[in-house]
Design a protein around this nucleic acid. Structure first.
Length: 123
DNA sequence: TGTTTGACCACGG
DNA sequence: GCCGTGGCCAAAC
């Protein structure tokens, strides 16, 4: 946990722009057809919180190189759909990748879940 | 300056 | 499974 504290201290010295890059870097690593969660990304970064990941992804709306549609909440719900334009776009993007979405929820969520912490070394 | 609000989550009952 | 509670932390008000 010492490493975690040092990591957090380091993170505190970063400005928001860098924090976005960490979140975006992980989001970009999510393979097509797979999904991850706000909390998992926050945990793998060992800084911030799930809320901050949502906040960061909100800032990503202006970018076209961040697959924010592959990030859902812990229940597999498309909680961020309202921030896409139009909102239906999030589901459409997922379905284009073969992910089945019913009632704003990813089907087979546990199987499609991609664990960011297992791929951190690739960053 | 203090309070409320989120693309959230873990936990207890 | 559902609910409330508490933690989270930047932004907006």
């Amino acid at each position: 946990m010492v490493a975690l504290q040092k990591y957090k201290a380091f993170a505190k010295s970063m400005d928001n722009e860098h924090y976005f890059e960490w979140v975006f870097a992980i989001a970009r690593k999510i393979p097509p057809g797979r999904v991850s969660t706000y909390g998992a990304i926050a945990d793998s970064l060992a800084l911030g919180s799930a809320r901050m990941v949502g906040w960061a992804l909100n800032q990503s709306a202006s970018r076209d190189d961040v697959p924010a549609h592959r990030v859902v909440n812990r229940k597999g719900e498309l909680s961020g759909r309202a921030h896409f334009s139009p909102p239906e776009r999030m589901q459409e993007l997922l379905e284009k990748e073969g992910v089945i979405v019913v009632d704003n929820r990813v089907q087979d969520f546990e199987k499609l879940f991609w664990h960011p912490a297992e791929h951190l070394e690739d960053l």
